[in-house]
Nucleic acid binder design. Structure first.
Lengths: 228, 228
DNA sequence: CCAAAAGTGTTTCACGTACACCCATGC
DNA sequence: GCATGGGTGTACGTGAAACACTTTTGG
C-alpha cells in the first residue's frame, strides 16, 4: 500500500429526505440547473470536501440546496456502478433523512433551480441512479421503523395517535388495527399523554401526545427492545 | 455542480472476513508490511481503482492479500473520520464477508507480511480505525443472522445441526435450547436431512444436513420471512 | 340529530420457552 | 459398560390478531 498515484474516483453524497404532510409521505427533490441531466429532478447532494466527514458533507449540501438543518440523518449505502455518472467516475454515499415538514419551510437555492416535495407514488423520472437510491431508502425506512421509534422525526412535536398510526401505515404500506396499535404503542411508555386536545376539526377532539425521548433512553439502557 | 477541481479524498475498501473453525468464530487479519502502522495487524483492504466497483475492489483485495475467492460479501458502512488515516484524507468503504473455513486455505500475499485468523475474543490492537470497523461488523452480523439464513456461508456444505446451533450461539453470544432450536429450524423447511451420518467421533453419529437454497428462494417468493 | 373521528376490551390462537430422558456408537 | 454427543415431546404462558360499539364534538 504505497503512496497512491492512481486516478481517484470523485466522491459525492446524495440525500433522500422524507417528509410528511396531510397528503402523505413525500420525498424532497431538486431540479438540476446544470448538465448532465439539466432540468431533470434529482436527489439533493454534491461533492465531498477534503476536510469534512461524510455526515458533515450531507448536512452541508442539504443546507445549501434546500435550507434544511437540524434533522435526523443516517448513512444508507454507497453506490459505485462505474457508469452511474456519465461525466467521470463518481462514487456516491447516500444518506436518508427524516424531517418534520411542519417545522420547515423548504427553499430552492444555489445550483438547484427549484426544490419540491413529491408523493412517493408520484415521483418523476430521476437523474443518475437516483431512482435506485430512493428505492433502497424506502426499503431501509420500512425495515427500520419496525424496530426503532423513528416515526417521531416526521411528526410535529405534539401529535394525535391517529397521525402516528397513519404514518406507520404509509411507511409499511398496509393498514393496522386501531385498537392493537394504540394498545401496543402506549404499552411501551415512550409517549406522553398531554391534557391538550386538538380543536376545530370535525369529530371528537383528539388527545395530543408527545414522544418522551428521556423515557426511551432510560428503557434502552435497561435492554428494552422496541418492535413494531 | 461544475467540474470538480477540489482535492479529492482517497478511497479504500476494508474487509471484515469472518470464518468458523472448531475453536469458534474468527476474523481474518493481515500484518502490515508498510508504514503507517507497519507490523500492526489490520483488516485486509486497499485503494479502489477508477474502473472497478466497490464490490469488485473488495473481492480483488481479498484475493490479492489472502487468496480468497467466491465468498459471501456485503457492504457494511463507509467510514470517513477526517484523521482516520495519518497520511492523508482517506475514506473507507467497509465490507464484511463470511467464508467456509473448511473450503479455504488462506495464504499471505503481496503487501501483507502475514495473514492469520484470530478468535473474536483475542483480537490484537489494530491499525487505523479498524477496531471500530470490526465492532460495527460484529453488530451487523448479530443483527443479520436473526432474520436471514446466512449462517450456512460459514459452515461446510454438509453439517450437523449441533454445528449450526453452536454457530448461532457464537454469533448471538448466548446459549440456545437444543430442542427448540432444532424444532424451529427444521420447521422452516430450508435444510435437507441427508441419509449420510458423521462417523469416527465419540458419541452417537450425527445425521448430516444441507442448506436447501432452492427451497429457500421459493419460500422467499411466497413472502416467507425467516426469523431467528 | 347527523356526520366524523376518538376511544375502548375480550377472545382466540400461535408461538416462544422451559424442561429431562433415552439412543447409538467407539473405546 | 461407560463415556460421549445425538435426538426427541409436552405443558405453560405471553403476546399477536381479530373484531364492534360508544363517546364527544361541530354543524
Amino acid at each position: 500500500m504505497a503512496t497512491y498515484e492512481y486516478p481517484r474516483p470523485a466522491l459525492t453524497v446524495d440525500c433522500v429526505v422524507f417528509g410528511l404532510d396531510d397528503e402523505g409521505l413525500k420525498v424532497l427533490l431538486i431540479r438540476r440547473g446544470l448538465a448532465p441531466f439539466k432540468g431533470r429532478w434529482a436527489l439533493p447532494g454534491g461533492f465531498v470536501r477534503v476536510e469534512e466527514t461524510l455526515d458533515e458533507a450531507a448536512l452541508r449540501e442539504l443546507r445549501e440546496e434546500t435550507g434544511l438543518k437540524k434533522i435526523f440523518l443516517e448513512q444508507l449505502y454507497t453506490f459505485s456502478a462505474v457508469k452511474r455518472d456519465p461525466r467521470e467516475r463518481v462514487i456516491s454515499v447516500a444518506y436518508y433523512a427524516l424531517i418534520k415538514l411542519s417545522d420547515h419551510r423548504v427553499q430552492a437555492a444555489t445550483d438547484a433551480d427549484d426544490a419540491a416535495w413529491f408523493r412517493l407514488d408520484a415521483v418523476p423520472e430521476l437523474a443518475f441512479d437516483h431512482a435506485e437510491i430512493l428505492e433502497v431508502a424506502r426499503d431501509r425506512l420500512k425495515g427500520k421503523v419496525r424496530y426503532q421509534p423513528i416515526g417521531f422525526e416526521l411528526l410535529p412535536e405534539k401529535f394525535k395517535l391517529s397521525q402516528l398510526q397513519e404514518l406507520y401505515e404509509q411507511i409499511l404500506g398496509r393498514e393496522l388495527d386501531k385498537r392493537n396499535f394504540r394498545k401496543k404503542f402506549l404499552s411501551f411508555g415512550i409517549i406522553q399523554e398531554l391534557e391538550e386536545r386538538e380543536q376545530g376539526l370535525p369529530g371528537r377532539p383528539a388527545r395530543l401526545h408527545r414522544f418522551d425521548a428521556k423515557a426511551y433512553r432510560k428503557l434502552l439502557e435497561q435492554g428494552f427492545h422496541f418492535e413494531l
